[in-house]
Nucleic acid binder design. Structure first.
Lengths: 240, 240
DNA sequence: CGAGCACTTGACCTCATTCAATATGGGTGG
DNA sequence: CCACCCATATTGAATGAGGTCAAGTGCTCG
């Protein structure tokens, strides 16, 4: 196994053919020549409902979403699931498993998905070569902590309307960052799942969406959302 | 500036005199010969109420608590603070700042504190030497994510009694891991701060502690807590 | 000794949950 | 193609956990 001693000049740009076709080259872990030079990543395809990793899995790996939509859940002792996060193309999953060497959560595809998998053992080998991949991952980890902290604030301090408004705006932003419409998109989550993520019941989520629709801030048709008044939602998500 | 090319055999044991006296050698970042060999860390002493770092600080650093008790807060647009975590000896702070290069939170001493400070720039230099310090930090980051996820579940799914019981047990565990009593300790937080951390009002925290005391599960005297029935608290924190 | 903060406790109220009834709609098999 | 089913979603009404407001105690510090 070759271990790379030198760092490419263009650390953050991916010219390797395996990744050049990937729409995620600006997000993905593969975004580093030394990684692809070692042979690229495993690809995995998942159908709706299929499990990417389970709580307790010791085959610890990181995953970059190439296509599709996944959720990550905490599994409570009574078997209940609470959604901790949802992931769209360009997101990285499995960051909470590095510490213990065991996945403490489970991740499930919400529609057809394709992910890049990199087994941690291998990532570790790559990262300790002073090639910048290590600090890239540290940044990812730290950003995840900062995002989770925002969600903790929402869960601890915001009303149902604030949470739902913030959720819609977060989704809109994430899609628009990736070049998609910020005003029209599909909730790939059921009302129940949104509730689980926001610490609310599904009835409350449904009522709140109806309330926003009645004010003509959004249009709702099942899981299709059309944001008509972003300002109003922003005001709602921020209002004391 | 010397950059270390070789890794000490005893990566995780600290024999350097500056750290040998430190009760935290099993936790602290300094727990690596190459770090101390480069000259040790800055030490900072803080009085009650003094700020370790503020939201927006660009002098990004990590901190290991040597003594004392600190809280980390999110600062809301209206100036309100929500407590995201509290830290006792051996904990590491500032992990959420690595990604953006700016501290997104603030940290305040709740009593007299001493911390080791390592500026990120310097830490980064040390970590890219294949000496294991990088993967040590990754583990810390990942463990922080896993801990935050547990707290997210608590905030989203648990009742007031469950949250307060879990909080007491968490504190007990953290003290006992460090060799102190798991049944008798001081809450270094006010009721208001506990409430902020748990997503509750201070009245609810007070009432809940009184309720536990009335059941003789704990004794409460101001901020001094005596846990008399750990089993009961555990049952309470887990009960549906 | 008075001011101010932390804490406790009571009474009331509100927002979200719970329970329930009723659509809606995609998928399957006849 | 339709009929049926089950999961999902909406909406209403009742309930309750926790929030809000308020009163009063105790403690610390100047």
């Amino acid at each position: 196994m070759t271990v790379f001693a030198h760092t490419s000049v263009a650390q953050r740009s991916c010219s390797h053919v395996a990744c050049a076709a990937c729409a995620l080259r600006n997000f993905c872990l593969a975004n580093c020549d030394t990684a692809t030079a070692e042979g690229g990543f495993n690809r995995r395809r998942l159908r709706t409902g299929e499990t990417l990793f389970q709580k307790g899995d010791t085959q610890v790996a990181l995953y970059a979403v190439r296509a599709g939509f996944l959720k990550t859940c905490a599994v409570l002792p009574n078997g209940e699931r609470r959604i901790l996060g949802y992931h769209i193309m360009g997101d990285v999953l499995g960051l909470d498993a590095i510490g213990a060497g065991v996945h403490p959560t489970e991740s499930v595809a919400l529609n057809g998905c394709e992910v890049c998998e990199i087994v941690l053992e291998r990532a570790d080998r790559l990262m300790n070569n002073g090639n910048g991949l290590g600090s890239y991952l540290r940044r990812l980890l730290s950003e995840q902590i900062a995002r989770n902290e925002e969600h903790m604030v929402a869960l601890g301090a915001f009303s149902a309307r604030q949470r739902v408004a913030a959720f819609l705006l977060d989704l809109a932003t994430r899609w628009s960052v990736r070049g998609y419409s910020a005003s029209q998109f599909e909730l790939c989550l059921t009302r129940k799942e949104i509730g689980s993520y926001l610490g609310l019941t599904f009835e409350t989520v449904s009522r709140t969406l109806s309330y926003f629709a009645s004010r003509e801030w959004i249009n709702v048709a099942g899981r299709d959302i059309h944001i008509r008044d972003r300002e109003a939602l922003q005001a709602q998500s921020a209002s004391d």
